[in-house]
Write a protein that binds this DNA or RNA. Structure first.
Length: 215
DNA sequence: ACATTAATTGTGT
DNA sequence: ACACAATTAATGT
């Protein structure tokens, strides 16, 4: 039983307060569901829709020249993908990939409306600017964690961020996944995780990591 | 309940 | 980074 898009917007995107805008979204938006593992956006594809994430979370990544997957950031409910905006403005192919890491519910909006809404609705404009700003801040943090932090600190930060975002104490991740997100080897991750477990900050299980207490 | 297999995780070099 | 061992979960018999 799906509720009206209108209600969902009011609940998850209170920042979009203009009644008329909400109606517009209701009219033009499509409510879609994806399962964990599905790819919503593939590298090289044209983007004609822009997502508003209602439930679940997405992993946004790109590929380097050797075909390695490189993590950009995670998207959670109440957020949107800033990259898909830049793509859809020009008639450009996507340079990112979006993969569902949990079951996901999203509203897809036709990019054709974006221009019009930017001019027409203040709250929409603010929303978009804010999405950019949040993403930008996060990327800055990521950059200096790569530049200045040692792997053990990066791992710890990674875990506490993920647990905060998903707001879950149990993360369903393999060591290999973490390793490719952090661009290191699986063995290093295993060893560092082991240390954290010894310190009593996490507990290790197969396929999952239980967070006990992280900074 | 047991054996087989595949994948994850652990460890030494 | 590589190689191999140990452990675990899933599946079939």
């Amino acid at each position: 039983m799906t509720h009206a898009i209108k209600d969902v917007i009011k609940e998850k995107f209170p920042i979009l307060y203009e009644e008329e805008l909400v109606n517009d979204i209701q009219q033009n938006g499509k409510l879609l569901n994806f399962e964990a593992g599905d790819r919503l956006i593939e590298i090289g594809a044209y983007i004609k829709q822009m997502p508003l994430l209602i439930k679940g979370s997405l992993k946004i990544s790109r590929e380097d020249k050797d075909g390695n997957e490189l993590l950009l950031y995670y998207l959670n409910s109440g957020e949107t993908c800033a990259m898909s905006l830049t793509c859809c403005m020009g008639d450009v192919r996507s340079n990112i990939r979006a993969t569902a890491i949990e079951d996901v519910e999203i509203i897809m909006l036709p990019t054709s409306k974006m221009d019009e809404w930017m001019k027409k609705y203040d709250s929409w404009k603010n929303f978009i600017f804010r999405a950019y700003q949040i993403r930008f801040d996060e990327m800055l943090q990521t950059i200096d964690s790569i530049a200045f932090m040692k792997m053990d600190e990066r791992l710890e930060r990674y875990l506490s961020e993920r647990s905060k975002e998903l707001n879950a104490k149990i993360l369903n991740l393999t060591h290999q996944e973490i390793a490719s997100d952090l661009n290191t080897s699986r063995e290093v991750v295993s060893r560092l995780l082991k240390q954290l477990e010894k310190l009593g900050r996490i507990k290790l299980h197969r396929f999952k990591i239980e967070i006990i207490s992280l900074v």
